[in-house]
Design a protein around this nucleic acid. Sequence first.
DNA 1: AATTACAGTGTAATGATTACAACTTTGTAT
DNA 2: ATACAAAGTTGTAATCATTACACTGTAATT
Lengths: 140, 140
Amino acid sequence: MHSTFETAKQKLKTKNINLSHQRLKVLEYLTKNTCHPTVEQIFSDLQKDIPTLSKTTIYNTLRILTETGIVKAVKIDDKEIRYDIITENHGHFKCEGCGMILDFSIDTDSMIAEGLEEFVIKDKSVYFKGVCPSCLSKYK
Amino acid sequence: MHSTFETAKQKLKTKNINLSHQRLKVLEYLTKNTCHPTVEQIFSDLQKDIPTLSKTTIYNTLRILTETGIVKAVKIDDKEIRYDIITENHGHFKCEGCGMILDFSIDTDSMIAEGLEEFVIKDKSVYFKGVCPSCLSKYK
DNA sequence: AATTACAGTGTAATGATTACAACTTTGTAT
DNA sequence: ATACAAAGTTGTAATCATTACACTGTAATT
């Protein structure tokens, strides 16, 4: 079984997308950091390895990875878009207290959308909001 | 049975929020226009009635209505936030072709999130993306 | 009438994202 | 190898929805 990283590389090859140094680094970063990083986080961390790195490259690469279906944009927060390597069906929970974003298992395949029988559905996103146990205990 | 508009008014009263002219107009607009309007749409339409209206008032009012739980922000689109009077559990479908946003019935109450047993869940959002029948027929 | 609190308005600031032009690297054919 | 073309990267400037803020107006209470 291939790793997420190898699978993604394979997918890019079949779509004739060049595996440049910067693109591989972004991909590697996302496979290692599944904490839904922002562009700023990806940029400032990778800049340590690649001092000449530009933020535009991060944006360009994430656009390509999103279009290819390797990465998914998480828009649970208002300001910054977060990015997530697509692994399996899961939803995102955001705590209103600490802002933490947590993955949770949910079977989106079994979700039935009444009235969309004639529609082609390409993507399903599930966002929950509330308070995490750690923040709950603070208000007790 | 009260109308959506009356129910919302009641809810604001119990929370000691003043039913000013502008606020009532925004509320009325949202009950009549359930097409998920943007701030720009709400503003430019209401400006016809209230020539002195300020866009900041729309933003302020929508913030209050969202905090009170009367209105829900729909963030399926990238740029502008859309607003939706909360009626019943439903998801939002966005067509990648024409950009149309459609409500669909989905039972969010029955959704089980594995691993969130100790969490308080206050809000659930379901977003689907794909192609609507009208756009599908164009590519045939 | 004076005071206080709340609501509305308009302008300025913010800040993530995008557009764009210049530069660099890579690949390819001669 | 060398020259040329294509693709990738970089940095700066522009965009634009949203927010901050200070000022103005209004309503209520005494």
